[in-house]
Design a protein around this nucleic acid. Structure first.
Lengths: 202, 202
DNA sequence: CATTACAGACCGAACAGTCGGTTTAAAATT
DNA sequence: AATTTTAAACCGACTGTTCGGTCTGTAATG
């Protein structure tokens, strides 16, 4: 990809972490990139096209889990690796803000998704596919842990997976609303995960 | 409150369940209400003022729990009452949409809060206060259940409360993204709540 | 008949996007 | 090596439209 185009995506992605699609103006984008409107429209056919690229950037470079790197030795090791990765995602998220005056995030993983769904209804399929893939990975680790005798529960693998994932998402959302520091979120849901784990470990 | 003003709030609230603040235009508001611009600005000094009233309407008439009505006999009865109330909230939410062609909700409890936080930073305090009050109610019911010998857990009352609340919120968010029918959300998280309950009940 | 409620023409600002033209640098030609 | 050609990158004034909001006039109300 063209370097300038990539530069525009990365720079304007910072704007989309503070305001939603409608609130970010072309004027702000050209100001942030230091380019002109003509230059922008040379690389993108519309503001919407930029936004699709920004979303793609977020979901392939920022809000992304590298599951291959997580231990599948035990469920315990797996979800601890996952929690640490969430911490790193938070750090990448904050890096996108360090050149802003008021380092307060008004958009987040969830609002970005809902904003995108409103503008691009087809985006739903992409998100749902991603969710399902994530659940499958958790299920397989959990199933293995159950077979190993690491854990034991009346819940199905899928129920355990959904409980862990949804709990962390719910906690994250509450903490974002409360304005808590991103790095503290991990500790809060990891503590609860450990407590849940205690109840299912053999 | 003036009947026309209330009518404007209720009618335009339906628009704010489909689009965010910036996306909803004055033209749509006057069209939806069948009134004129002059009439609107006779009752409200700005679009923002309307939005504060709409938010107030949502959080006092739609997205609201009537905790006094919930059983505090047992934690089990309490969270079942809560889950049923969530069902009713979902129904009220859907009622606001029945006169629209495409009955698909693009805004929800969470996006509304985040939209509001961006426009009215002071709204955070209101939301956080509400969250804390909710947790306190749960904590007291859980504490009582523990004292009664209904439940037993290595988790603190607050941890149990946060686990239950955040889990249902996380589930709701996932299900909204998936486009699942609102009424099914209750069954999904209530099932998980029951499983968690099984593990802490004496 | 004074006040409230409403209508709708109207306003300037802001919006996304366009367009004619300039700069830059590499490729082609002499 | 010097000159010409070509194309991509970029510029910013400009366009048509829509935005939230105002203003003046009229109808209803009590």
């Amino acid at each position: 990809m063209n370097a300038t185009k990539e530069f525009i995506i990365v720079e304007s992605s910072k704007l989309f972490l503070r305001k939603n699609f409608k609130e970010v103006t072309m004027q702000e984008i050209v100001q942030k990139t230091g380019l002109s409107k003509g230059a922008f429209y040379h690389h993108f056919k519309s503001k919407e096209e930029l936004f699709t690229e920004v979303l793609n950037y977020f979901f392939t470079h920022v809000f992304v889990h590298n599951y291959e790197a997580y231990s599948t030795e035990s469920f315990y090791a797996f979800y601890h690796d996952y929690a640490n990765a969430v911490q790193n995602i938070g750090k990448r998220y904050l890096e996108n803000m360090k050149d802003e005056e008021n380092s307060f995030f008004n958009m987040n993983y969830f609002t970005l998704i809902f904003d995108a769904l409103r503008i691009f209804p087809d985006f739903r399929q992409t998100v749902v596919t991603g969710f399902k893939a994530e659940i499958e990975i958790w299920k397989s680790v959990i199933g293995k842990a159950r077979a190993n005798g690491e854990i034991q529960s009346s819940m199905t693998d899928e129920e355990i997976a959904m409980t862990f994932i949804s709990l962390s998402d719910g906690i994250a959302m509450h903490m974002i609303v409360r304005g808590i520091r991103i790095n503290e979120v991990r500790d809060i849901f990891l503590n609860l995960w450990d407590k849940l784990y205690e109840q299912i470990k053999v």
